[in-house]
């Protein structure tokens, strides 16, 4: 139970943690206050609690596939908001004025809160099940705390690693990571809709489980980080690639303007 809770919680926390660290790095680049993270964490936790508590009822919606539909909608909404974040960040006309910055922060709050809702609801269900059994309370609490610690640490590491990079490198690496996370969100949404039988199942494109198993620690970390899947279907892969390319396209298109913004900030 101890190792299981570490693995489970760290994987769930990691996804939101990386997303937070990249958005924080982008906000820092725009010289914005980081108080938005706190608002996002509180809002996300409240909604995760509500969703987690009502998971049983939600699951019964749409002929017992409500959970997939709600989760896929959350994932797709996050992807759309990530498109908007990339657009706002990359166009100095928005990122350099007050209104644009407020929209950027409100958007960042929505992305993080939504990411926490989904992962948090799962953690909530895990904990209410495990913590009612006296034998497990100590091991599960300790494991969950360590798991949370691991998830947050990796996020913090990412944040400072990105901070250590110079402007252009930070922009490119941040953008690539952002595109991979958005890609992973789309492929997860496709998988969920397929699980609910709302989308047709397409053939598996490859099987890399012998190279890197999803059971392994690295596999689980990579799943949390960039949505590593050992046996992706054609549709999941297409969704992943398409989304990642859209983010790169939006973010790369206005590169010269970022330089203009940096010069304005430095001046």
């Amino acid at each position: 139970m101890f190792l299981n809770s570490i693995a489970l919680i760290s994987q769930e926390v990691l996804e939101a943690s990386i997303l937070i660290s990249i958005l924080m790095a982008l906000a820092k680049q725009l010289q914005l206050s980081q108080r938005w993270v706190l608002i996002a964490l509180v809002m996300g936790s409240i909604f995760a609690f509500i969703y987690g508590q009502n998971m049983g009822d939600v699951s019964e919606w749409f002929d017992y596939v409500g959970q997939e539909i709600v989760n896929a909608s959350i994932q797709l909404l996050i992807v759309i908001l990530m498109f908007l974040a990339t657009f706002l960040y990359s166009h100095s006309i928005f990122s350099s004025n007050k209104q644009g910055q407020i929209i950027f922060l409100a958007n960042a709050i929505a992305i993080v809160a939504l990411a926490i809702v989904r992962e948090g609801a799962e953690i909530y269900n895990y904990l209410i099940g495990a913590l009612v059994q006296p034998d497990y309370v100590l091991t599960v609490t300790a494991g969950s705390l360590i798991g949370t610690g691991i998830g947050i640490s990796i996020g913090v590491l990412f944040y400072y690693a990105m901070g250590a990079l110079t402007g252009k490198k930070r922009h490119i690496i941040g953008l690539v990571l952002f595109s991979l996370i958005a890609g992973s969100m789309t492929s997860q949404a496709i998988l969920l809709l397929n699980q609910a039988d709302w989308l047709i199942s397409t053939p598996v494109l490859w099987d890399s489980s012998h190279l890197l198993s999803e059971h392994s620690l690295t596999g689980r970390l990579l799943y949390g980080l960039i949505g590593y899947e050992a046996t992706p279907s054609a549709l999941e892969f297409a969704g992943y690639l398409g989304t990642a390319l859209i983010i790169l396209f939006i973010g790369m298109k206005k590169m010269p303007k970022i330089k203009c913004l940096e010069q304005t900030i430095n001046a």
Partner: peptide, 23 residues
């Protein structure tokens, strides 16, 4: 208590609340 049906080989993952059923 809740349980989560998971399979790496089937690419499936779903929480099932206590005393409930899912598809």
């Amino acid at each position: 208590t809740p349980e989560e049906f998971e399979s790496y080989d089937l690419n499936r993952e779903k929480v099932i609340a206590g005393n409930r059923k899912v598809i």
